[in-house]
Amino acid sequence: MCNSANCSHFPPRPAKQELEKGAVLSPKFDSDGLIAAAVTDFDTGDLLMVGYMNAEALQRTIDSGEAWYWSRSRQEYWKKGGTSGQVQNVIEMRTDCDQDAIWLRVRVAGNGATCHVGYNSCFYRKIEKDATGNTILTFAEAAPVYDPEEVYGKK
């Protein structure tokens, strides 16, 4: 994996002014060679997920127009929707001012869901306080869009 000091996919990081105002993509990967990617629905603006990309996953996403990530738990590349059909077609890609985060604006194929547990968004629960002041999770989405066992099988 590349890190911010050594990455063959992208040029070395320029001086601050060029980095912030220039036209050269020079992402800042963390010490593990990863960059965070926030993913929103292009049409609704809903936050769907946050994933991580290494340089190869970022380059695959740029080249293919479909979202690729680096799985930290499995230590492998994964194309979102490769198994489920819920491919994230990238409509627009942005980076922030210091190029240490990526924002993907996507349209999701298949049933339009993103979360592997069946919900439209991975952010399907809200953090709230109940009447007694205890922190609880409540559901922001009424029900899953699909049954994960039908898509992925029993795990």
Rank of each mutant, 00 (worst) to 15 (best):
E76Y: 10
G82N: 12
R60F: 13
A131C: 05
Y146P: 06
V90G: 05
L19E: 09
V50L: 12
P144F: 03
M1Y: 14
K79N: 13
A140E: 06
S64K: 15
G133P: 15
T132G: 05
E141A: 01
V145E: 05
E92R: 13
T95W: 10
V87Y: 09
T95K: 06
M53E: 07
Y152F: 15
T114W: 00
G82F: 04
R74V: 10
T61Y: 03
S84D: 01
A15H: 00
G153V: 07
C115E: 03
E141I: 01
F123C: 01
L34M: 15
L19C: 09
T95M: 11
F139Y: 11
C97H: 08
M49F: 02
Y69N: 07
V108G: 04
T44K: 02
C115S: 06
V106K: 02
N6L: 12
Y77H: 12
Y124C: 01
S4G: 12
G22F: 06
F139N: 06
E20R: 10
G153Q: 05
Q59T: 02
D98C: 11
S84Y: 01
S64G: 14
M93G: 15
D98I: 14
A140K: 06
S84M: 06
A140Y: 01
P27E: 04
A57F: 14
E66G: 02
N54T: 10
C2K: 09
K126L: 08
L47M: 06
P14H: 11
D98S: 05
G51W: 03
A67R: 02
P11G: 14
V87A: 05
I136Q: 08
A38V: 10
S4Q: 14
I127P: 00
E56I: 15
R74Q: 10
K21N: 15
A131H: 13
R125S: 05
I102F: 11
W103Q: 11
L137D: 04
K154R: 12
C7Q: 15
T83A: 13
R13A: 12
L48W: 05
G51L: 04
A55N: 09
I136C: 04
M53C: 05
V87H: 08
A5Y: 15
Y119K: 00
L19N: 14
W103N: 03
L104S: 00
H9R: 08
F139I: 00
G33A: 06
M53T: 03
Q88P: 09
P148Q: 14
D96W: 10
D63W: 07
Y52Q: 07
A5S: 15
F42S: 01
A113G: 08
G45A: 05
A15E: 13
S26I: 09
Y119C: 01
Q17M: 04
T44C: 03
E128L: 08
Q86I: 03
D130H: 07
D32Y: 10
I127V: 11
F42M: 00
T40W: 00
C7W: 10
A67Q: 08
T44V: 04
T40K: 02
C2F: 10
I91Q: 15
W68R: 13
Q86V: 06
S8I: 14
E18I: 08
F10E: 14
G110I: 03
N3I: 15
